[in-house]
Amino acid sequence: MTDRPHGVPPAELDDDTLRREMTHLHETRHDTVLGGSEDALEVHTRRMLELEAEFLRRFPSEAAPDPRRTRAGSREEAGRPVPGSG
């Protein structure tokens, strides 16, 4: 496979375009996994990881998990002690 860039580097995208690119990649992921060639899947995966890393860098608070979806948050919500917290 030729090692050529696919798309604008994520750091150069404005916020709206980054969000739009990520949305599009997530929408096409299933079809790429099921029907794409090995090369297409590799390129798709690389681009998806690049975009996601840039999103996480720019918007860490948006990507933070809901506390109820973590073990500690679930235990706390259920009234059970959180290991190492006391």
Results as ranks from 00 to 15, higher is better:
residue 44 H to D: 05
residue 53 A to K: 13
residue 21 E to V: 00
residue 53 A to V: 07
residue 44 H to L: 05
residue 18 L to V: 07
residue 31 D to R: 06
residue 47 R to F: 02
residue 39 D to S: 04
residue 46 R to P: 00
residue 54 E to H: 10
residue 23 T to G: 12
residue 28 T to Y: 01
residue 38 E to N: 03
residue 52 E to L: 14
residue 51 L to H: 08
residue 30 H to C: 12
residue 58 R to E: 00
residue 48 M to C: 13
residue 50 E to T: 03
residue 36 G to M: 07
residue 42 E to N: 05
residue 49 L to E: 13
residue 22 M to C: 04
residue 57 R to Q: 12
residue 17 T to C: 00
residue 13 L to N: 02
residue 26 H to Y: 08
residue 26 H to A: 12
residue 40 A to R: 00
residue 58 R to P: 08
residue 45 T to K: 11
residue 25 L to A: 10
residue 57 R to C: 12
residue 60 P to Y: 06
residue 14 D to R: 09
residue 56 L to E: 14
residue 45 T to N: 13
residue 61 S to H: 15
residue 49 L to H: 12
residue 51 L to S: 07
residue 22 M to L: 10
residue 36 G to D: 01
residue 32 T to M: 04
residue 21 E to R: 01
residue 28 T to M: 01
residue 58 R to F: 03
residue 49 L to R: 15
residue 53 A to Q: 04
residue 26 H to D: 11
residue 41 L to V: 04
residue 34 L to W: 08
residue 14 D to C: 02
residue 62 E to C: 15
residue 32 T to I: 04
residue 23 T to S: 13
residue 40 A to V: 02
residue 51 L to I: 09
residue 58 R to I: 08
residue 51 L to N: 02
residue 41 L to S: 10
residue 51 L to E: 09
residue 42 E to L: 03
residue 51 L to W: 02
residue 28 T to K: 05
residue 56 L to C: 15
residue 53 A to C: 04
residue 15 D to E: 11
residue 15 D to G: 09
residue 44 H to G: 05
residue 36 G to T: 00
residue 56 L to M: 14
residue 52 E to N: 11
residue 58 R to Y: 11
residue 16 D to V: 02
residue 47 R to M: 01
residue 62 E to H: 15
residue 37 S to V: 06
residue 56 L to V: 13
residue 31 D to A: 12
residue 34 L to S: 11
residue 41 L to C: 00
residue 40 A to W: 02
residue 36 G to P: 02
residue 44 H to K: 09
residue 29 R to G: 04
residue 36 G to N: 01
residue 19 R to E: 11
residue 43 V to A: 04
residue 15 D to T: 14
